[in-house]
Design a protein around this nucleic acid. Structure first.
Length: 286
DNA sequence: AAGTAGCCCAACCGCAATTTA
DNA sequence: CTAAATTGCGGTTGGGCTACT
């Protein structure tokens, strides 16, 4: 007996999520917690299958996600863990807080594989390619049809071109590398590569250290512009609220949200949301 | 400026593992 | 114990974006 398909209903939406859908999903999970993915779409009014909701939350909306480029440290961890665990992306992701299995898998397929090959290391066995040649020649005969599209695209020459391109991109992005081409890290382990790519008008907030609660239950937040991380944190704009679920929903509806970004969470119940309109930036702590 | 090629990543799909009745 | 339901995982794809010609 086969299993019921996840999305058995005609009319369920597929493809990219809209801000409206994100709001509905966030609101529902904040109010009800993560449970019953199967029932969630119906209860929240989303025309998506539960699986799709789960994926959207896990990979994109979760408040504890660390977005932006992976640091050299994280990359090395992924390589080490892959050597031990193989393609068990969720296990690997569990060792890298704020990173998703999907993100790591994508990064592996687009960057690390290439990098290892360039270093003469087989990305599956983590051994020097010269040791693999014999085995590869044998395997090629039987595995031709299993080659993925990405693999097909990676012909010689293209790789060299790509490497040059990546070097250019790094240069353009102003990556801070030391003389050994290693990203510069600060003493506390924070790496410059950790900083997500933000537009100049976007704001970076370190919630863990930047806010404190006042006697009336509200919170104060210091906001500093991401383009000048070392400058003293002069507030740009802030409006803090603490709302119950239904009011939170109303709040989201009333806001003209241009961009929605989760930055941090203090604990499982407290989440931080930053919204931005043409004229103001609003943060919410629950 | 327009067309093309290739990269990247969000999201989908199918299957496996786990839980529930 | 078994079948059905649900959740989680890994492979793959599609389309937007950018660089190149």
């Amino acid at each position: 007996m086969g299993r019921q398909p996840c999305c058995d209903k005609v009319g369920l939406k597929k493809g990219p999520w809209t801000v409206e859908e994100d709001k509905k999903l966030i609101n529902f999970i904040l109010t009800n917690g993560q449970c019953c993915w199967r029932a969630l779409p119906k209860l929240s009014g989303l025309l998506r299958c539960g699986k799709s909701c789960r994926l959207r939350w896990i990979n994109y909306l979760r408040p504890d996600l660390k977005r932006g480029l992976l640091s050299e440290n994280e990359e090395q961890m992924i390589i080490d863990l892959h050597a031990q665990l193989g393609n068990r992306w969720s296990k690997i992701a569990s060792h890298l807080p704020g990173r998703t299995d999907n993100e790591i898998k994508n990064h592996w397929n687009t960057h690390i594989k290439k990098k290892l090959r360039k270093m003469g290391i087989d990305h599956m066995t983590h051994k020097p390619l010269s040791e693999q040649e014999g085995a590869q020649q044998q395997a090629q005969g039987t595995k031709k049809s299993l080659v993925s599209r990405d693999e097909k695209n990676r012909n010689q020459g293209q790789e060299d071109q790509q490497t040059r391109k990546e070097e250019d991109q790094q240069h353009q992005l102003g990556k801070h590398l030391d003389k050994n081409n290693t990203p510069i890290s600060t003493d506390d382990g924070f790496c410059i590569d950790d900083i997500p790519l933000l537009n100049p008008h976007e704001i970076f907030v370190d919630i863990s250290s930047a806010h404190h609660h006042t006697s009336d239950g509200n919170a104060n937040i210091n906001i500093s512009n991401s383009t000048s991380p070392s400058s003293s944190s002069s507030p740009t704009s802030s409006c803090i609220s603490s709302l119950p679920g239904d009011e939170f929903s109303k709040f989201l509806d009333e806001m003209e949200i241009v961009d929605l970004k989760w930055l941090s969470s203090d604990d499982s119940s407290g989440v931080t949301l930053i919204t931005k309109t043409e004229s103001s930036i609003t943060m919410l702590i629950r």
